[in-house]
Protein backbone atom coordinates (compact mmCIF):
# COMPACT_ATOMS: atom_id res chain seq x y z
CA UNK A 1 0.00 0.00 0.00
CA UNK A 2 1.48 3.28 -1.11
CA UNK A 3 0.37 6.52 0.51
CA UNK A 4 0.64 10.12 -0.62
CA UNK A 5 0.18 13.06 1.71
CA UNK A 6 -1.32 16.28 0.45
CA UNK A 7 -0.48 19.24 2.65
CA UNK A 8 2.75 19.59 4.61
CA UNK A 9 1.56 21.77 7.49
CA UNK A 10 1.09 20.70 11.10
CA UNK A 11 -1.44 17.99 10.16
CA UNK A 12 0.59 16.71 7.21
CA UNK A 13 3.62 16.35 9.49
CA UNK A 14 1.54 14.59 12.14
CA UNK A 15 0.01 12.12 9.69
CA UNK A 16 3.42 11.50 8.10
CA UNK A 17 4.77 10.44 11.48
CA UNK A 18 1.92 7.93 11.86
CA UNK A 19 2.11 6.08 8.53
CA UNK A 20 5.46 4.36 9.27
CA UNK A 21 3.64 2.60 12.13
CA UNK A 22 1.71 0.66 9.47
CA UNK A 23 3.00 -1.60 6.72
CA UNK A 24 2.16 1.08 4.17
CA UNK A 25 4.85 2.99 2.31
CA UNK A 26 4.93 6.76 2.34
CA UNK A 27 5.44 7.43 -1.34
CA UNK A 28 5.21 11.17 -1.73
CA UNK A 29 4.15 14.59 -0.58
CA UNK A 30 2.37 17.43 -2.30
CA UNK A 31 2.30 20.93 -0.86
CA UNK A 32 1.33 24.34 -2.11
CA UNK A 33 4.89 24.71 -3.38
CA UNK A 34 7.63 22.06 -3.69
CA UNK A 35 9.73 24.00 -1.19
CA UNK A 36 7.07 23.58 1.49
CA UNK A 37 6.93 19.82 0.83
CA UNK A 38 10.72 19.33 0.88
CA UNK A 39 11.36 19.07 4.67
CA UNK A 40 8.63 16.46 5.11
CA UNK A 41 9.74 14.47 2.06
CA UNK A 42 13.37 14.54 3.22
CA UNK A 43 12.37 13.50 6.70
CA UNK A 44 10.55 10.40 5.48
CA UNK A 45 12.65 9.62 2.41
CA UNK A 46 9.85 10.11 -0.09
CA UNK A 47 9.34 12.17 -3.21
CA UNK A 48 7.98 15.65 -3.65
CA UNK A 49 5.23 15.74 -6.25
CA UNK A 50 4.23 18.99 -7.94
CA UNK A 51 0.50 18.31 -7.76
CA UNK A 52 -2.15 15.88 -6.57
CA UNK A 53 -2.64 14.89 -10.19
CA UNK A 54 1.02 13.93 -10.48
CA UNK A 55 0.90 11.99 -7.20
CA UNK A 56 -2.23 9.92 -7.90
CA UNK A 57 -0.76 7.39 -10.39
CA UNK A 58 1.91 6.41 -7.82
CA UNK A 59 -0.25 5.75 -4.76
CA UNK A 60 -3.17 3.64 -3.46
CA UNK A 61 -4.16 6.00 -0.68
CA UNK A 62 -4.38 9.79 -0.52
CA UNK A 63 -4.10 11.52 2.85
CA UNK A 64 -5.59 14.99 2.57
CA UNK A 65 -4.24 17.43 5.14
CA UNK A 66 -4.96 20.63 3.28
CA UNK A 67 -7.04 23.65 4.32
CA UNK A 68 -10.75 22.88 4.60
CA UNK A 69 -11.88 24.65 1.46
CA UNK A 70 -9.66 22.39 -0.66
CA UNK A 71 -11.04 19.09 0.69
CA UNK A 72 -13.97 18.92 -1.71
CA UNK A 73 -12.10 19.17 -4.97
CA UNK A 74 -9.21 16.98 -3.78
CA UNK A 75 -11.40 14.14 -2.51
CA UNK A 76 -13.35 14.17 -5.78
CA UNK A 77 -10.07 14.00 -7.69
CA UNK A 78 -8.78 11.12 -5.58
CA UNK A 79 -12.07 9.23 -5.87
CA UNK A 80 -12.08 9.71 -9.63
CA UNK A 81 -8.68 8.00 -9.64
CA UNK A 82 -10.12 5.19 -7.45
CA UNK A 83 -7.84 5.96 -4.49
CA UNK A 84 -8.82 5.45 -0.87
CA UNK A 85 -8.95 8.72 1.02
CA UNK A 86 -8.35 9.94 4.53
CA UNK A 87 -9.54 13.51 4.76
CA UNK A 88 -8.85 15.85 7.69
CA UNK A 89 -11.86 17.29 9.47
CA UNK A 90 -14.06 19.08 8.67
CA UNK A 91 -15.03 16.82 5.80
CA UNK A 92 -16.17 19.76 3.71
CA UNK A 93 -17.02 23.42 3.88
CA UNK A 94 -20.68 22.76 3.00
CA UNK A 95 -23.11 19.88 3.42
CA UNK A 96 -23.69 19.72 -0.35
CA UNK A 97 -19.97 19.36 -0.97
CA UNK A 98 -19.73 16.63 1.65
CA UNK A 99 -22.62 14.73 0.10
CA UNK A 100 -20.95 14.91 -3.28
CA UNK A 101 -17.65 13.65 -1.81
CA UNK A 102 -19.34 10.71 -0.08
CA UNK A 103 -21.26 9.82 -3.25
CA UNK A 104 -18.09 9.99 -5.33
CA UNK A 105 -16.16 7.69 -3.01
CA UNK A 106 -19.05 5.24 -2.79
CA UNK A 107 -19.39 5.25 -6.58
CA UNK A 108 -15.64 4.65 -6.95
CA UNK A 109 -15.74 1.86 -4.36
CA UNK A 110 -13.04 3.53 -2.23
CA UNK A 111 -12.96 4.06 1.51
CA UNK A 112 -13.28 7.55 2.97
CA UNK A 113 -12.18 8.22 6.55
CA UNK A 114 -12.79 11.66 8.05
CA UNK A 115 -10.12 12.66 10.54
CA UNK A 116 -12.27 13.05 13.65
CA UNK A 117 -9.26 12.11 15.71
CA UNK A 118 -10.90 12.88 19.05
CA UNK A 119 -12.64 9.52 18.82
CA UNK A 120 -9.19 7.94 19.05
CA UNK A 121 -8.03 9.82 22.13
CA UNK A 122 -8.12 7.21 24.89
CA UNK A 123 -10.02 9.33 27.43
CA UNK A 124 -12.72 10.07 24.86
CA UNK A 125 -12.79 6.50 23.56
CA UNK A 126 -13.06 5.13 27.11
CA UNK A 127 -15.95 7.45 27.95
CA UNK A 128 -17.79 6.44 24.78
CA UNK A 129 -17.16 2.78 25.54
CA UNK A 130 -18.37 3.22 29.12
CA UNK A 131 -21.60 4.91 28.04
CA UNK A 132 -22.17 2.39 25.26
CA UNK A 133 -21.67 -0.45 27.74
CA UNK A 134 -24.86 0.68 29.43
CA UNK A 135 -23.71 0.28 33.02
CA UNK A 136 -24.29 3.94 33.88
CA UNK A 137 -27.49 4.36 31.89
CA UNK A 138 -28.50 6.80 29.20
CA UNK A 139 -26.62 10.08 28.75
CA UNK A 140 -28.62 13.12 29.90
CA UNK A 141 -26.40 16.22 30.02
CA UNK A 142 -23.04 16.53 28.27
CA UNK A 143 -20.50 19.32 28.69
CA UNK A 144 -17.69 19.39 26.16
CA UNK A 145 -14.94 21.98 26.12
CA UNK A 146 -11.93 22.61 23.89
CA UNK A 147 -10.05 25.83 24.49
CA UNK A 148 -6.90 26.87 22.65
CA UNK A 149 -5.15 29.90 21.25
CA UNK A 150 -5.92 31.20 17.80
CA UNK A 151 -3.94 29.13 15.25
CA UNK A 152 -1.03 30.94 13.66
CA UNK A 153 0.72 30.44 10.36
CA UNK A 154 3.75 32.22 9.04
CA UNK A 155 1.84 33.29 5.96
CA UNK A 156 -1.57 32.66 4.47
CA UNK A 157 -3.35 31.92 7.77
CA UNK A 158 -6.35 30.18 6.21
CA UNK A 159 -7.64 29.25 9.70
CA UNK A 160 -8.82 32.80 10.29
CA UNK A 161 -10.24 33.14 6.78
CA UNK A 162 -13.87 32.33 7.44
CA UNK A 163 -14.62 31.46 3.81
CA UNK A 164 -11.82 28.90 3.76
CA UNK A 165 -12.03 27.35 7.22
CA UNK A 166 -15.47 28.17 8.57
CA UNK A 167 -13.68 29.71 11.53
CA UNK A 168 -13.35 28.36 15.06
CA UNK A 169 -16.83 26.85 15.15
CA UNK A 170 -16.18 24.77 12.03
CA UNK A 171 -12.54 24.00 12.67
CA UNK A 172 -12.44 23.38 16.42
CA UNK A 173 -15.93 22.93 17.86
CA UNK A 174 -16.66 20.36 15.17
CA UNK A 175 -14.58 17.88 17.18
CA UNK A 176 -16.99 18.05 20.06
CA UNK A 177 -20.09 18.27 17.86
CA UNK A 178 -18.96 14.93 16.40
CA UNK A 179 -18.20 13.52 19.83
CA UNK A 180 -21.51 14.67 21.36
CA UNK A 181 -23.36 13.03 18.49
CA UNK A 182 -21.27 9.85 18.80
CA UNK A 183 -22.16 9.55 22.49
CA UNK A 184 -25.71 10.93 22.67
CA UNK A 185 -26.99 10.36 19.15
CA UNK A 186 -28.32 12.54 16.35
CA UNK A 187 -28.86 16.21 17.00
CA UNK A 188 -32.30 17.79 16.52
CA UNK A 189 -31.60 21.46 17.25
CA UNK A 190 -28.59 23.71 17.72
CA UNK A 191 -28.50 27.13 19.36
CA UNK A 192 -25.14 28.86 19.43
CA UNK A 193 -23.41 32.17 19.98
CA UNK A 194 -19.84 33.18 19.27
CA UNK A 195 -17.75 36.30 19.57
CA UNK A 196 -17.08 36.57 15.86
CA UNK A 197 -20.75 36.79 14.91
CA UNK A 198 -21.28 39.89 17.03
CA UNK A 199 -17.76 41.34 17.00
CA UNK A 200 -16.15 40.61 13.63
CA UNK A 201 -13.10 42.69 14.57
CA UNK A 202 -12.46 41.09 17.97
CA UNK A 203 -9.45 39.15 16.67
CA UNK A 204 -10.36 36.13 18.80
CA UNK A 205 -13.30 33.77 18.88
CA UNK A 206 -15.13 31.88 21.57
CA UNK A 207 -18.29 29.88 21.00
CA UNK A 208 -20.96 28.33 23.20
CA UNK A 209 -23.57 25.98 21.79
CA UNK A 210 -26.56 24.11 23.18
CA UNK A 211 -27.48 20.95 21.31
CA UNK A 212 -30.73 19.06 21.78
CA UNK A 213 -30.32 15.43 20.76
CA UNK A 214 -33.20 13.38 19.36
CA UNK A 215 -32.72 11.10 22.38
CA UNK A 216 -33.69 14.01 24.65
CA UNK A 217 -30.13 14.47 25.90
CA UNK A 218 -28.75 18.01 25.90
CA UNK A 219 -25.14 19.02 25.22
CA UNK A 220 -23.21 22.15 26.08
CA UNK A 221 -20.29 22.64 23.70
CA UNK A 222 -17.58 25.23 24.25
CA UNK A 223 -14.82 26.07 21.81
CA UNK A 224 -12.27 28.82 22.06
CA UNK A 225 -9.58 30.55 20.12
CA UNK A 226 -9.44 33.21 22.83
CA UNK A 227 -6.93 31.69 25.26
CA UNK A 228 -3.30 32.79 25.37
CA UNK A 229 -0.68 30.44 23.92
CA UNK A 230 0.26 27.73 24.64
CA UNK A 231 -3.11 26.74 26.16
CA UNK A 232 -4.67 23.54 24.83
CA UNK A 233 -7.18 22.30 27.33
CA UNK A 234 -9.94 19.80 26.76
CA UNK A 235 -12.60 18.75 29.21
CA UNK A 236 -15.86 16.89 29.30
CA UNK A 237 -18.55 15.74 31.66
CA UNK A 238 -21.10 13.16 30.64
CA UNK A 239 -23.92 12.90 33.17
CA UNK A 240 -25.79 9.64 32.75
CA UNK A 241 -28.63 8.11 34.72
CA UNK A 242 -26.33 6.22 37.08
CA UNK A 243 -23.01 7.96 36.82
CA UNK A 244 -21.03 11.00 35.79
CA UNK A 245 -17.93 10.69 33.63
CA UNK A 246 -15.53 13.60 33.91
CA UNK A 247 -12.28 14.45 32.16
CA UNK A 248 -10.09 17.54 32.35
CA UNK A 249 -6.80 17.56 30.49
CA UNK A 250 -5.36 20.02 33.01
CA UNK A 251 -6.11 17.63 35.85
CA UNK A 252 -4.75 14.53 34.09
CA UNK A 253 -1.54 16.00 32.69
CA UNK A 254 1.03 13.54 34.07
CA UNK A 255 4.04 15.78 33.53
CA UNK A 256 4.32 19.43 34.43
CA UNK A 257 7.53 21.40 33.97
CA UNK A 258 8.05 24.45 36.17
CA UNK A 259 11.00 26.08 34.45
CA UNK A 260 12.82 29.19 35.63
CA UNK A 261 12.57 32.01 33.15
CA UNK A 262 15.14 34.67 32.41
CA UNK A 263 14.49 37.85 34.33
CA UNK A 264 11.58 36.50 36.37
CA UNK A 265 10.35 38.84 39.08
CA UNK A 266 8.26 38.19 42.17
CA UNK A 267 7.97 39.28 45.77
CA UNK A 268 10.86 38.66 48.14
CA UNK A 269 9.12 35.83 49.98
CA UNK A 270 6.38 33.57 48.63
CA UNK A 271 3.09 33.85 50.53
CA UNK A 272 0.25 31.40 49.90
CA UNK A 273 -2.99 33.03 48.82
CA UNK A 274 -6.55 31.83 48.25
CA UNK A 275 -9.51 34.19 48.44
CA UNK A 276 -10.85 34.12 52.01
CA UNK A 277 -12.83 36.60 54.07
CA UNK A 278 -10.07 36.49 56.68
CA UNK A 279 -6.39 35.89 56.06
CA UNK A 280 -4.97 33.00 58.13
CA UNK A 281 -2.38 35.51 59.38
CA UNK A 282 -5.24 37.62 60.73
CA UNK A 283 -6.82 34.54 62.33
CA UNK A 284 -3.49 33.85 64.02
CA UNK A 285 -3.05 37.40 65.34
CA UNK A 286 -6.66 37.46 66.59
CA UNK A 287 -6.13 34.16 68.38
CA UNK A 288 -3.10 35.58 70.18
CA UNK A 289 -4.94 38.81 71.00
CA UNK A 290 -7.75 36.81 72.62
CA UNK A 291 -5.27 34.67 74.56
CA UNK A 292 -3.79 37.83 76.08
CA UNK A 293 -7.08 39.69 76.57
CA UNK A 294 -8.81 36.70 78.19
CA UNK A 295 -5.69 35.23 79.80
CA UNK A 296 -6.23 31.94 77.96
CA UNK A 297 -3.62 29.44 76.73
CA UNK A 298 -2.10 30.35 73.36
CA UNK A 299 -3.25 27.96 70.57
CA UNK A 300 0.34 27.28 69.43
CA UNK A 301 2.49 26.68 72.46
CA UNK A 302 6.10 27.72 72.68
CA UNK A 303 6.93 24.08 73.38
CA UNK A 304 5.46 23.21 69.95
CA UNK A 305 7.78 25.83 68.46
CA UNK A 306 10.76 24.37 70.28
CA UNK A 307 9.96 20.83 69.09
CA UNK A 308 9.81 22.07 65.49
CA UNK A 309 13.23 23.71 65.90
CA UNK A 310 14.62 20.43 67.20
CA UNK A 311 13.28 18.55 64.15
CA UNK A 312 14.65 21.11 61.71
CA UNK A 313 18.11 21.11 63.28
CA UNK A 314 18.16 17.31 63.24
CA UNK A 315 17.18 17.39 59.54
CA UNK A 316 20.12 19.71 58.81
CA UNK A 317 22.48 17.52 60.78
CA UNK A 318 21.18 14.41 59.04
CA UNK A 319 21.59 15.98 55.62
CA UNK A 320 25.15 17.02 56.48
CA UNK A 321 26.26 13.73 58.05
CA UNK A 322 24.23 11.29 55.96
CA UNK A 323 22.86 9.40 58.96
CA UNK A 324 19.44 9.26 60.65
CA UNK A 325 19.22 11.38 63.79
CA UNK A 326 17.26 10.18 66.81
CA UNK A 327 15.39 12.89 68.72
CA UNK A 328 15.63 12.89 72.52
CA UNK A 329 12.48 13.91 74.42
CA UNK A 330 12.73 17.59 75.30
CA UNK A 331 12.46 18.35 79.00
CA UNK A 332 9.59 20.62 80.05
CA UNK A 333 10.80 24.19 80.33
CA UNK A 334 10.13 25.33 83.89
CA UNK A 335 8.63 28.76 84.25
Amino acid sequence: MRVGIVGAGAMGMTHAAAWPCTLATLAGVVAKTPDLARPLADGYGCRVYPSLGALLPDVDVVDICTPTHLHHQMVLQAAAASKHVICEKPLARTVAQGQEMIAACRHAGVKLLVGHVVRFFPEYALAKQTVAGGSIGKPAVLRLSRVVFQPRKADDNWFVDFEKSGGMVMDLMIHDFDYARWVAGDVATVYARNILSGNPDAGVDHGLAILMHRSGAISHVEGSWAYPPPTFRTAFEIACERGLLAHDSAATAPITVYAHKQGERAGDVPLPASPLAESPYTTEIKAFYHAIAEDAPVPVSAADGLAAVQIALAAIESAQRGVPIALAPLPEVQP
Binding site: K138, A140, Y191, C240, E241
Partner: peptide, 11 residues
Protein backbone atom coordinates in the same frame (compact mmCIF):
# COMPACT_ATOMS: atom_id res chain seq x y z
CA UNK B 1 -33.14 33.82 26.92
CA UNK B 2 -32.94 30.39 25.29
CA UNK B 3 -33.26 27.21 27.31
CA UNK B 4 -33.44 23.47 26.89
CA UNK B 5 -34.56 21.25 29.75
CA UNK B 6 -34.87 17.50 30.02
CA UNK B 7 -35.74 14.82 32.53
CA UNK B 8 -33.51 11.83 31.95
CA UNK B 9 -31.66 11.88 35.26
CA UNK B 10 -33.93 10.62 38.07
CA UNK B 11 -36.80 10.25 35.58
Amino acid sequence: VYARFNRILHA
